[in-house]
Amino acid sequence: MTQLALVIDLNVCVGCHACVTNCKEWNTSGPAGPLVDLNPYGKNPTGTFFNRVQTYEVGEFPNTETVHFPKSCLHCEEPPCVPVCPTGASYKRKEDGIVLVDYDKCIGCKYCSWACPYGAREFDEHQRVMKKCTLCVDRIYDTTLTDEERRPACVRACPTSARLFGDIHDPESEVSRAIRENGGYQLMPEWGTQPANHYLPRRKTQIRLREDELERADNPLKIDRQLPKPAQAEPALDDVTSW
């Protein structure tokens, strides 16, 4: 059974927010749209975004990591948002595992957002319905698009290719390989939600230098520190001592 998901590589995410606004521009004019913006030019502007990047500092100076952490609906395999929905608006698709909201059925009661431990749901204050990441379901099955285009908007936009998309149930997929080989992990697995989206941790590259590798036999200083030979005619002790 297919389970589509995003795998987000924190090792290369620079926190540029491309995924955030590209998601917004794609989805605001799509089936989930419009995505409202309240007070767009006033005090405390706030709007509906399916994807957000949070930034955390970890550790104490100077051993500080700055972590950029993009987060959207994790398309849980056991989504707590689905059973709590009183109208059946919140549902998980059997064919690909995407968790969606049927806006026609949603009554805006917000039970699902209370049930979601990840805070990934976004209430549209204007339409009074719950919205969230659809994994760009309107792109990925659109046969009028090229293969390259049939990916979520955030994945295509990402300048560092930090976002991978695919079927985590297919062990040969790019996403499964990335999880397997790079220590991919789930958010808060203890909740038993089995989030489909995974994160790849920071990996550090170091250079180990051994002392005996520092200088080599062909060190150029051997040439450059050679002093020129004195001229033949220059005075020498040799010329003035006779015994």
Binding site: S29, P34, L35, D37, P40
Partner: peptide
């Protein structure tokens, strides 16, 4: 200057 914007 809009106070609510539903861009579509």
């Amino acid at each position: 200057r809009k106070s609510i914007w539903n861009y579509f």
